[in-house]
Amino acid sequence: MSNDWPRIPVRDRVPYNPIVGRRFRLPNDARVAVWTIVNVENWDAAGAMPRNVLSPPMGQPLLPDIPNWAWHEYGMRVGFWRFVDVLAARGLKASFAVNASAISAYPAACEAARAAGWDFIGHGFVQGPMHAVADQREAIRQTIETIRGFTGRPVRGWESPGLTETDDTVDLLAEAGIEYVADWVLDDQPVAIKTRSGNIVSVPYTVEVNDVVLSAIQQQPSDAILQRGRDQFDRLYQEGATVPRVMAISIHPYLTGVPHRIRYLEALYDHILAHDGVLMCTGAEILDIFRNQANDR
C-alpha cells in the first residue's frame, strides 16, 4: 500500500449514525457489555517519562527521572498482581493492552496474563505517540509478530499509546490484519470504521472511566474510579433496557493497582456483578458479537 494514496477524511471513515434505531443486540438480551482493559507499558528509564507524579525540583527536568520511572515500576512489581487477583477472584478476563517490548521487560507479568487467558491487544512496540514513530507499518508489524510469537494466537485488537493516530494509522492496522481498535472514543456501541482495506471496528473505549485521566491528569480522590464508574454503569444499565450499551474500564498497574485505590476497583466490579443482564467480556468477544450480526457491513 502506498502512503501516497488519497487520505480518507475522518468523517468519511465514521459517517454520523445516532444510536437510536440500531439493530445491535447483546446475547441473552443483556443490557450492558463490560470490558476491562489492563494497560502494561515499557517506560524507558533514560528518557522523559510519559506521566509524572512528582514535578522536578525548581522546574528543571533531569534524566534519568528516577522518581517517576520508579512510580511506574511499582505497578509492574506490585500493582499488576493485585489486578490478577481481583479479576481472578471474580472469574473475569481482561483485554491486555501491552507494549510488545514489555514482553521481554516484564516476562512474569505477561506470562500471568497469558495463563489467565486474557485477550492480548497491541499497544505499540514502545510507549510513545504514533506520530513519533518513524515507520508505523514496521512498528505495527513488529508489535503483532512479537505478541503473536508469545501467545501463539492472532492479535485482533489495538490501542495506540495515548490513543494517538496519524491519518494513516487505522489503514495500516487494517492492512496488518487488526480487526478492532480502542482509539475512537465516540460511541456506546461498536462502530465500523472505513479503511483502505475494508472496515475495522471501533470497540467502545473510555477516556473518563480511565485511571490516567482520573488519577494522573485530573488528580481525583482515590475513590473516583468507583464513584464515576458506578454512575457510568448505572446510566448505561438503565438505557440498555431498550438500547444495549458497552462500558469500558481502563486501568494501569501504577495507578489503580496501588494500595489506596485497589479496593475501589473491587467495589466497582462487585456493584456491576450484582446486576442481572450484564455481560462481562473481552474486546474480542464484543467484536464477535457485533460482527456476527453483520453490523459492520
Rank of each mutant, 00 (worst) to 15 (best):
N28K: 08
N28Y: 06
V32T: 06
V32M: 05
A33P: 04
V34N: 00
V34M: 02
V34Q: 01
W35Q: 03
T36G: 06
I37D: 07
V38Y: 02
N39R: 06
V40Q: 09
E41P: 07
N42K: 13
N42P: 00
N42S: 15
G47P: 00
G47C: 14
M49G: 12
P50C: 13
P50T: 11
V53N: 10
L54I: 15
L54W: 13
L54G: 02
G59C: 02
G59P: 02
L62A: 00
L62I: 07
L63N: 01
L63R: 13
L63W: 04
P64E: 06
D65N: 10
D65E: 00
D65I: 01
I66P: 01
N68H: 05
W71P: 00
Y74V: 10
V78L: 08
W81G: 02
W81L: 04
W81Q: 03
F83V: 01
F83M: 07
V84L: 10
V84K: 08
V86I: 12
A89C: 07
R90T: 02
G91R: 08
S95N: 08
A97C: 13
A97D: 06
A97F: 09
V98N: 05
N99Y: 09
N99A: 09
A100M: 08
A100G: 14
S101Y: 11
I103Y: 03
S104H: 13
P107A: 11
A112T: 06
A115E: 10
A115S: 10
W118C: 03
W118R: 02
W118G: 01
D119T: 12
I121P: 04
I121E: 04
G122S: 09
H123R: 04
G124L: 03
F125C: 08
V126G: 08
Q136I: 10
Q136L: 13
E138I: 07
T143I: 02
I144P: 01
I144Y: 06
E145R: 14
T146A: 14
T146Q: 12
I147W: 02
I147L: 12
G149H: 11
G149F: 12
F150S: 02
F150R: 01
F150C: 02
T151F: 00
